Amino acid sequence: MQKRISMFAAAFALMTGVFASTVLAADKAIVVEMETTEGKIVLELDQAKAPKTVANFLAYIEKDHYPGTVFHRVMPDFMIQGGGMDATLSEKETLPPIRNEASNGLRNDEYTIAMARTGDPHSATSQFFINSGTKNSFLNRADPRSDGFGYAVFGKVIEGKDVVDKIEAKPTRTVPAPKGGLMENVPVEPVLIQAVRVVSGVQK
């Protein structure tokens, strides 16, 4: 069984272009704790329906990428986005982008976590968003209002929904971007990700 799981993890590495030393335990849910300056958010990741995306997220956790990043885009009744910029709003270096898994049947329902991306459907790297609105179905691939690809959901919040609500309620402003232009919906008081750790579902 261990050999089969290890081969499964290796297949993920080939698909995502990254290799993490964590080995997915197929018989357990993957649970991740995210410590923020507003409190703890606990996530359950769906490796069965979003294998490439979950493997990618775990690779960033293993690289210790997320501590020191902020939720840089916060929009009430919509979502909170983070995982890619530090407190100065400078982007951190990322791994190669991954293929979009938005056709996996998971929906952008309230308190689900999905991958952020540019207009290129296969451009997601480290940034993610947590849906905080109840009318985000237009982000689903199957929705006729989507861009034809959608945004890939790969898990859900199982504890700390109140923390998501607190972050969502933060006052925001428009600020100059480090590389020029403007960034909108930036919290006035930075909301920092302090730690992200896997608490169950993988073996080292």
Rank of each mutant, 00 (worst) to 15 (best):
V188H: 05
K166H: 01
D120S: 13
V175I: 14
P144H: 00
K135M: 08
I167D: 00
G148Y: 10
G150V: 06
E159P: 09
E189W: 07
Q127N: 11
V186N: 03
L139C: 04
F149S: 14
L139F: 10
V188W: 05
D165M: 09
G148D: 11
G180S: 03
I193D: 00
S146I: 08
V157E: 14
K170P: 05
A177M: 02
R173I: 06
D147K: 06
K161Q: 14
K179T: 09
I158Y: 07
F128K: 05
R141K: 15
A169L: 13
F154S: 00
I158F: 11
D147P: 06
G148F: 12
K166C: 02
P187L: 06
L182Q: 15
A152V: 04
H122W: 08
G181A: 07
L139V: 04
R145G: 03
V186Y: 00
E184I: 09
A124G: 02
P178T: 10
K170S: 14
V191E: 00
T174I: 12
K170F: 08
E159A: 15
N136T: 14
N185A: 14
V164T: 04
M183K: 15
T125D: 10
F154N: 00
G160E: 01
D120L: 06
G160Q: 02
E189Q: 14
K179C: 02
V191D: 00
I130G: 06
K179I: 04
P121G: 12
D147Y: 10
A177D: 15
D162N: 11
F128Q: 09
E168K: 15
G150L: 06
S123L: 00
N140R: 11
Y151C: 07
V157M: 15
L139N: 06
K179M: 11
L139Y: 05
D162L: 08
E184N: 12
L182V: 14
A177C: 05
E189C: 05
I193P: 01
S137F: 03
Q127I: 06
H122M: 09
T125I: 09
K179N: 10
R173V: 12
A142T: 10
Y151W: 15
R173H: 13
P178R: 11
P178K: 11
P144E: 01
N131T: 12
A169I: 05
I130E: 09
E189H: 11
P187D: 06
D162A: 13
P190C: 01
S137C: 01
K135H: 14
G150E: 09
R141G: 01
P171R: 07
R141T: 09
E184W: 03
T172I: 12
G160A: 05
D120V: 08
F149I: 04
E184T: 12
G133T: 09
